[in-house]
Design a protein around this nucleic acid. Structure first.
Lengths: 218, 218
DNA sequence: TTTCCTATGGGGATCAGCACCCATCTTCGG
DNA sequence: CCGAAGATGGGTGCTGATCCCCATAGGAAA
């Protein structure tokens, strides 16, 4: 008897990665990649015009990121389940993905059978958090929420993330102030808040953090 | 008749990517992945203890980057050809890879058959520059060299490189002075010399440089 | 409505980074 | 033997970064 395979859309800007993941998934009896996309808007377009059960989205993509695409899919194609597949072992992105409606978050460092399991779990309706570091992230996060009522929000605001990137790219306070057309004082204020929220000492640690988190390139 | 397949070492910190690329390469009659590595030092270790014809190295890897690994391989295992496989469409990395002894530089955005072609070209001894943007890079680079604008080929002294690493790891001048049992003044003097030699502005640019060069981890 | 958060901006203090000046001592090669 | 280069260290002064204090406007949440 023939089982209906899960129809998968695979979105990643690297053709090589798409090809490899496709080979892994198509090898499974219950999974089939029916479409590929090189960026977020392509992914959304595909989901609008053909039946897709599961969208596997990379976060870092040109034009529209996987996070944007996930948000858009939750309104224009709510029946499509979303699994984020990314290299970013990063709290920010993780919670943003959950907020954007993703049912799973898997790092590219997982083994192939973990990805397959993530696909199946997502299709069963179970949220899949890749084993290890991510569950630790969630646990410490929940701990903080439970105990640290005084810790306001460990998540950076959009403005703060913008400042963070500019700082980590090597811009001085003055340069950032000119770029954003705000005063140097405000830039310093934001940066100070960021340092405090992330528990870092100075611009240099901020840079290393941002590079490690994949927010900027070295 | 059986042809000896090219023995390939595949180094990438993402198990999923390794798996995918392996599926692509093993599908070819003349190529075979005989080993995998999750970071640069693993890659070097593998090449020391078993025969490898071609090492495919990712640039961004923990502990030891692909650039460092390439440099090391050129001395401890000079017979191994090196092909850099990376997501960075970036002039800096490209030339650093060439200097480190890589015979090829391929982006992860290429198609699978381009990767296969790159492997074959590298084994034939031809340098493989992925089509398009990279050849343009090479042309402008050669132009610059020809027109006498010789690149800043400044070499740091051993002591300066030691200081550079400590600075890039986030240590303050005072901390470095204590670590090396020298005065803060001398640390600042060295750091100043480093900045001047490399044409950088401050600690932050120094850090980004060191990370890009593979001297320290993020 | 009232309260909280965010973004905005100012003043002042302290400190680290950085550039410029100066020097001595060692080592190594011509 | 001498000069160049590297490593060491001191002084001075400027600028930027960081950390305090303060305030206001707007929006969202309670």
């Amino acid at each position: 008897m023939t089982i209906a395979k899960t129809k998968i859309l695979l979105a990643d800007d690297h053709a090589l990665v798409r090809r490899g993941v496709r080979l892994i998934l198509d090898n499974q009896p219950d999974l089939q990649v029916v479409a590929e996309a090189a960026d977020g808007s392509e992914a959304v377009a595909v989901c609008r015009r053909q039946p897709v059960d599961l969208a596997i989205l990379d976060i870092a993509m040109p034009r529209m990121t996987g996070l944007q695409a996930a948000r858009e899919l939750s309104t224009v194609a709510p029946h499509v389940r979303v699994l984020m597949l990314t290299m970013y072992d990063n709290e920010q992105y993780f919670f943003q993905a959950l907020k954007a409606g993703a049912s799973g978050y898997v790092l590219k460092s997982v083994l192939d059978r973990d990805l397959v399991e993530a696909c199946r779990a997502t299709m069963r309706g179970e949220p899949f958090l890749y084993p290890g570091a991510m569950t630790r992230l969630v646990r410490t996060y929940l701990e903080r929420v439970r105990h640290g009522a005084d810790l306001p929000q460990q998540i950076l605001t959009a403005r703060e993330e913008e400042i963070l990137k500019l700082v980590a790219e090597g811009n001085s306070s003055k340069e950032i102030a000119e770029l954003l057309t705000i005063s140097v004082k405000t830039v310093e204020r934001h940066r100070s808040n960021i340092l405090q929220k992330l528990g870092l000492r100075d611009r240099l640690e901020l840079t290393r953090y941002a590079i490690r988190a994949g927010l900027v390139e070295p």
